Computed example of a mutant assay.
Amino acid sequence: MAGASLLVLFDDIASVLDDVASMTNLAAKKTAGVLGDDLALNAEQVSGVRASRELPIVWAVAMGSFKNKLILVPLALALSAFAPVLIMPLLMLGGAYLCFEGFEKLAHKYLHSAAEDQAEHDDLVQALAHEEVDMLAFEKDKIKGAIRTDFVLSGEIIIITLGTVAGAAFSRQVVVLSAIAIIMTVGVYGLVGLIVKLDDIGLYLKTKKGSAALRGLRHSVGDALLAFAPKLMRALTVIGTIAMFMVGGGILTHGIPAVHHFIENSALAVASVAGVGALLAALTPSLLNAIAGVIAGAIVLVAVTLLQRIYGVFKSKPA
């Protein structure tokens, strides 16, 4: 009897772990857009600092990210327990923010003058030219800015994850949210640390001594890494932006039944195309979600820009 009870307990535990793993996997897929953007943004945060300080800065931001999630996860669980009706509005708000952020990147050159970009570049050059005490202050500003950015992105990740597990038992919500918080933080900042050191690894391989054949191989690999590192940064930015539209648009369309059904019906309609129906059916929802994300991002950006201008007009008026 005791043995049978133990087997039932093991079966229950295995079932729970399987469910948790499935929900964690689903949540990770849904937060992919934020993850790509998180990678690109955090890798960019260490631009302009000395090579010897890159990893310490990444570590400092990673610790700040853990602290952010220690605040966000309990808040999300409290929201699920006491105000679950707010989950969908917050998801929609997070989706709209993702679309806005993605479209703002596309429209950056039209929203920011060349003078503003040049001023930012000059500030960076000036900071690098100063003594170590100024450099330390510059690093602190970088870290604070990165942690603030992480708080927003982490909030999006947690809310999206919460929406994924909203119907699950509270204990499973705790496990999945905690797992996503840990996996995303370790994964993002581990990859950021690797990305920002790719060029240093390339330089190390080019200067490493050895036999002629081995030295030639190392130099080739080093040259490849030095050429690959900046391209990877650019690719991460592009992929992250596309993913933001797909994920943000997907959240918004899922929350609007008419649009959600239209996308489902469109996928079913193209599935009957001979030869490529299955591929088109798989790609159509992502494409339509991305288009919806671009449209939503443009609408939000226009609204935000108008509000900023109206606020500026009122602020400039004499009291």
Rank of each mutant, 00 (worst) to 15 (best):
A2Y: 13
G3V: 13
G3Q: 11
A4F: 09
A4P: 06
L9V: 15
L9R: 12
A14T: 14
A21K: 05
M23S: 02
M23N: 01
M23A: 02
T24W: 00
N25L: 10
A28C: 09
K29E: 14
T31F: 07
D37P: 08
D37C: 11
A40G: 03
A43F: 08
Q45T: 15
A51P: 10
S52R: 15
R53A: 10
V58R: 06
A60M: 08
V61L: 12
A62I: 10
M63W: 12
S65W: 05
K67Y: 08
K69W: 07
A83E: 06
L86S: 04
L90M: 13
L91F: 08
G94L: 14
G95Q: 03
G95T: 06
A96L: 15
G102F: 00
F103A: 10
F103E: 09
K105F: 12
K105Q: 15
L106G: 06
L111W: 13
S113Q: 04
A114D: 01
L124K: 08
L124Y: 04
V125M: 02
A127C: 01
A127F: 00
M135D: 11
L136S: 13
K140Y: 10
K144M: 13
K144R: 09
T149S: 01
F151Q: 12
I159H: 04
A166W: 03
A168G: 00
S171P: 02
Q173V: 08
A181E: 02
I182M: 07
I183A: 01
I183R: 00
Y189R: 06
G190I: 15
G190F: 15
L205G: 01
K209A: 10
K209N: 08
L214H: 08
H219G: 13
S220W: 08
L226W: 05
A227I: 14
P230H: 07
P230I: 12
T237M: 04
T237Y: 02
G240T: 12
T253N: 00
H260N: 15
H260Y: 15
I263F: 00
A267S: 13
L268I: 09
L268Y: 04
A271N: 07
G275F: 05
L280Y: 05
A282T: 14
L288W: 02
L288I: 09
L288R: 03
V294G: 01
V304L: 06
L306N: 09
L306W: 09
I310H: 10
V313C: 07
S316M: 12
